[in-house]
Structures are given as structure tokens and as C-alpha cells.
Design a protein around this nucleic acid. Structure first.
Lengths: 361, 361
DNA sequence: CTGTTAGCGCTTTCAT
DNA sequence: ATGAAAGCGCTAACAG
């Protein structure tokens, strides 16, 4: 920039005012500076600018896995919001590890981001030190997808509990009583009683726990007693899910309906059903979280609960911008509606032989 | 940091040497500085550091759409590589627009990124000004997924042409002669003859053009004459794809096999087949690009060409690091292998009535 | 409206 | 091994 000023025959400050669009500059000086800048192919140095202004016009995003279509959707929403406000986004993947999440937030702070959008893996007060550290430095943080209990932070989530409850209600409404709950990567390793399951789950992802609660809610409403064998107990991958579901199907009193909490679980259930004596959907109804274009071309098309991924991201970014802009209001939790895409994978259960004395024709 | 130095009773330079891990510091001074830093909860300012060192330890990534699972996978690979080298990544979405891509690259340059990974929408020399601008400023750029003709740049891609050719060969091998080519969002709006199609396609995504060439290759090998009506001609969305495919199925001589270039197209084909008199796979075989866990639980499971998304990203980032590290070798194109996931969606065509005089029983 | 002068927080000579 | 001082490229405050 010193070169531009020299070339234009003005002081550095005048060149800076022109190129930075601030202050007052006479049209003539302005023109000369612009021309000189073009001739010299001048580009501003954002770092230097941020150095003096103290703002970077950048927000940091920390998610568990950028490769996961869910977070990719969220990121897309964040990018949309940033596009509209000329913000830049730095992404970091934390792999569900508090340590990685913590260091990611450190990097973001050091890079002087103006705000952070975080899908945290933290669920216990003693895991939130890094978040509180950032908070104490007055860096706006907005949680997305997952709430961290005990922290006064803005958050954008869907009503997981109600969505799960609604799904189970639909099963109940058409006559199901044996309803399984199959969750994704993280789940206990063996069947657990209700209380224990809830307490253990509390130590897991917030959203999964909420969905389990919704499942219990609907069971209670319908007066169905909870059977621990109808909750999947596997970890980490689709193969394990398949095994777990196979075990359920082999029960003397197998489930007639299944609620799955994410794509991996849904695919696992379908695979397990494929090579069993169960026909789908006739023998087993399915509802799953996280809709996909594939779900609609399954045979039959799958009923799914679609999360507004892009919206989640967009709203989270906007909340962050509001805080950056100086909003000092109370921390707010925005709950976005999930969409129930009703398709053909839910049917009434076949009358069971043992009960069907009026079915003997 | 001045505060830390004061607190420790040393000069700024000594504190800096300790905190920045450079130069030589006596153990005692070092300890005092570290303690003071901890007491003051010191955090370094990366911007200031970059300001003097001239490096940011950050790479920029520009893709068409972060929400697209393909790019999300690529980004995941880039993040993996960055994780291993302590680099940070800034992502920008360009929506297939040269203007947006250009401004994104501008932002990245201004932020002083050390290198750029780019999936460009550019296909013509007069669309590459922004890329050349960055090149002239000596910023390492690595292309990923798409090659931009005429630019001496490193690139990481898959062999799209060969993958498509292999797929079509498989159709031919089991007896198909009427093979359709259905592509994704961007395609001509009406049926085009071969030459015209190729020239128009040249103006489209490089990877799509390559796949079309592979399709032609296999047709030629088998002595099948190209029928323009068997190439989808629609734009932008799944609904349009469905219409286009329906039109093909309504032909007097409909296709018996379809190659799709991406998920949207694949789903479109399946949907079009659903409510037609065509049974799948009996009447119509399908192979598609971009595998998904869903594809394996379709009925029947879909044969798909899986791109090594994560690898593409990882290798691209590593090439960028090498350039940043000073590698001045010739620009290289890395071609990664695609994986052919053979499943049950390819069957021999049913003998056609008009030809089947030995089928009249 | 324009120029001069300080810094922003760090690294980097260059002395000591 | 340590300190003093210069400077990265820019904005901000103050004179003029």
C-alpha cells in the first residue's frame, strides 16, 4: 500500500482511506489511488487490517465430522448465511473427541475468529472447560444440533424428543405394540433396564437421549411396557447394528415396528430385514431420522423424519452474527421443526397367530 | 505478551522466544515465562504471528457446494490431512459460479492462505483469470475432481472416462445394446447429435464430459450406433430427470440399461422406473456413479461406481503442502482409482419380442 | 480533505 | 542467553 500511495502521489493514509472505503477522500485523489492500485495489482492484507481493527469477519465452526451429510448440510446453511454477510468460515473436525474439540476451539480463538458455531461432544460439566474458556474471553458461541447442559449459550436444535414421540405414536395408532428403538454408532453394549438406560444415555449424545425419552413417552402413553430387548445394543458401525437387529427379529416375540435414529441405523435395519423371513413393510414397519433422496425410492418408500439441516446452520450463524453485532440478550434455544415425510413404510402389524382366533378362516 | 514479559520480569523478546518455541532461553527464564503466561491465561495471536512470519498455516478450499455429500467427503479428506499437519482450513462455496469462485479466491488470497485446493467451475481459457491471478502471486493451487484445461496445475481426479467405459462394457458384456446415459443437474436441454453433444459438453463440467466420452468409447467398441434419444436432456433437478427418463422409457425401442453420472440422476431413474411398466432390474439394468450405503439396501442392491472422495481430498491437500514446502517440480495430475461395487442391478436384457422368433412358445 | 504519527502483537535482526 | 529496537501492512487519532 505504501507503493500505491507513492505511485499515486498521496500519503499512505489517503490511499488507505480509498482502498479501505472509509474516511473522506476527494474524487481526484480517489481516482489516482484507484488507478495506481490497479496498475500495481494491489490486494489488501486482511491480516494487517484485522490486526488494527480487532475483527476478522470470520467465524469458526467445529463439528464432529464434516464428511457426515448431516453436518455437511448444516455447514451449507452456515455458508449461506456467511455468503450473505461477507463472513468467512473456518471449519474444524473434532471426531467426537473433547480433546480435539478443545484444541480446535483454541486454534479458532488464536486466529481471532469473531464467533464460533459448535456441535459439541461435551455432555458433562467437567468437559466444558474449553467452552467456558472461550466464553470468558467474550467470544460468542452458538451451539448447533446438540445442547450442552449447564451452559448459558444460544443453541439451535430440533425437538428430538417430540419427533421421536410422534413417530412412535404413529406406530401405536395403527396397532403396533412391539416397537423397537435402533440407534446409531453410539449405544450401550448390552440390554439395559429403563432407568439405567436413561442414565447411561445421559452420558451420550444429547440428541440420542432426547429421542429415547420421546420413545419412552409414547410407550407410556399407550401403556406399553418397555422391553430392554427392543433397544439395539451395539456400537460403532452398521455391521454391528445388523447383528443387533437380527437378534431382535429372532426373538419369540419380535418387533413389528422400528424407529431408527439415523441413517446408519436405518440402513442396518433394512439390511437385517433383507435376509430374514420378515417381509418389509408387511411384517415390519420402519420410521427413521434423517431423510434422504434414496429413502423415497426404496421399495416401499420409507417414512422419515427430516431434519432442517441447512436451516439449523443458517440460524446458528445468524445468532452468532447477532452476538457479534453486540446483542447482549439472554441465551436462547431455538427449536426448529422437523418434517415428517410420511411414505409407505408404516403399515398395520399382521394379526398375530396367537391372538387371532377371529382370523382363522 | 508484553504483560507476560513484565510479569515474568524479562524482556518481550525472551517471552516471545519461550512462547513461540524458537531461539534460546535459559531454563529459569523459560519457567518464569511459562508460569506467568499460565497465570495470565496468555494465548498467542496467530494474526500477529502470521504478520511477521508471512505464513498462516492455513489452506483455502473452494468447492461448488459444501452440502453435497461428494464434496463433504472430499473436505473430510482435506481435514484429515490438515489435522495431521496442524493446518487450518477455510472453506468457501462457489455454487458453480465463476464470479463467486473468483471472489472466493480473492478472499483467500487476502487472508494470506498458504495454499488453495480448488474444484473449479472454469472450463474455458477466458474463465481462468482469477486462477492465473493467484498463480502469478505464487500461491500454490491444487485442483481436485475437475481439471481446468490449459493451466499448469497439480490436480487430483479419478479416471472418469475409463470408469464410464468400464460400466458400459459390463452392460454390453451381458447383451445390452440400448444403453442410456443419464446425467445430473447440468445437461443440454434437447437431444443432440454426437459431435454437437461433445462440443457442448466441453463447455460443461470436465468430469461429465469425460464420462460421456467413456460412454461413446464403449459404444464404438461394441459397434453400437449412438442414439441421441438415449442421453437425458434436462437440467437442474431430479424432477426434470424423471421426466426425461420417462420419455426414454416410452420410446418404441426403449433402453434396457442406464448409466447415471451421479446420485440425483440415479434416484431420478429409479423413480421413473417405479411407476412404469418396466420392472427393475429385469427390464432395465442400472449402474451409477457415487456409491452410498443406501444403494446396497435397494431392492435389488445397486451396482455403483464409488469415487474415493476422502482420498481425493487428502491427496490434494498433501500436494498443496508439498508445494507450500517449496516443491517446484512440474505440475502433476494424480489419477485415483474408482471402485466398481458390483451388485445385483445388472442383468441380461430380456429377449426382445421382435427379434425372438425362437421365443414364441 | 489530507498528512503525520502511533500503534495492533508478534518475530527478528543486532548488540550486548 | 538476553535485551532493545525495527518493522510486518494496515487503521485511527489528531493536526492542519
Amino acid at each position: 500500500m505504501a507503493a500505491v500511495a507513492a505511485e499515486a502521489g498521496v500519503a499512505k493514509a489517503t490511499a488507505a482511506r480509498t482502498l479501505g472505503n472509509y474516511g473522506a477522500v476527494s474524487p481526484e485523489a480517489r481516482a489516482r489511488v484507484l488507478e495506481a492500485a490497479a496498475r500495481l495489482r494491489y490486494r489488501p492484507n486482511s491480516l494487517a487490517r484485522s490486526m488494527t481493527t480487532g475483527v476478522t469477519h470470520t467465524i469458526g465452526v467445529v463439528v464432529a465430522d464434516i464428511g457426515n451429510p448431516f453436518f455437511a448440510g448444516v455447514l451449507r446453511g452456515i455458508a449461506d448465511a456467511c455468503d450473505a454477510t461477507d463472513y468467512t468460515v473456518i471449519v474444524m473436525s473434532a471426531d467426537e473427541s473433547i480433546a480435539k474439540e478443545s484444541s480446535a476451539i483454541g486454534v479458532l480463538m488464536d486466529k481471532q475468529v469473531d464467533g464460533i458455531v459448535l456441535a459439541s461432544a461435551a455432555w458433562r460439566p467437567d468437559q466444558t472447560a474449553h467452552i467456558q474458556e472461550a466464553m470468558s474471553r467474550e467470544i460468542p458461541i452458538v451451539l448447533v444440533d446438540r445442547i450442552v447442559p449447564g451452559l448459558e449459550l444460544d443453541a439451535v436444535v430440533i425437538d428430538n424428543r417430540q419427533s421421536a414421540r410422534d413417530a412412535v405414536r404413529r406406530f401405536v395408532a395403527v396397532g403396533h405394540r412391539r416397537i423397537a428403538f435402533v440407534w446409531g454408532p453410539s449405544a450401550p453394549e448390552r440390554p439395559l433396564e429403563r432407568e439405567r438406560l436413561l442414565s447411561v444415555t445421559d452420558t451420550w449424545l444429547w440428541s440420542s437421549a432426547e429421542r429415547l425419552r420421546g420413545y419412552f413417552d409414547a410407550l407410556d402413553e399407550a401403556g406399553i411396557v418397555f422391553d430392554p430387548l427392543l433397544v439395539s445394543n451395539c456400537r460403532l458401525n452398521e455391521a454391528a447394528t445388523v447383528d443387533s437387529v437380527r437378534a431382535m427379529l429372532a426373538l419369540p416375540d419380535p418387533p413389528t415396528a422400528v424407529l431408527t435414529t439415523e441413517t446408519t441405523a436405518t440402513v442396518g435395519v433394512l439390511r437385517a430385514t433383507r435376509d430374514s423371513r420378515f417381509a418389509y413393510p408387511g411384517d415390519i414397519s420402519v420410521i427413521g431420522f434423517d431423510d434422504s433422496s434414496w429413502a423415497s425410492v426404496m421399495e416401499p418408500p420409507l417414512t422419515m423424519i427430516a431434519q432442517p439441516m441447512r436451516e439449523l446452520g443458517r440460524v446458528a450463524a445468524e445468532l452468532a452474527f447477532a452476538r457479534i453485532g453486540g446483542d447482549r440478550g439472554d441465551a436462547a434455544v431455538e427449536t426448529l421443526p422437523a418434517t415428517f415425510n410420511s411414505r409407505a413404510s408404516v403399515t398395520a402389524p399382521r394379526p398375530q397367530v396367537s391372538l387371532s382366533d377371529d382370523d382363522g378362516r
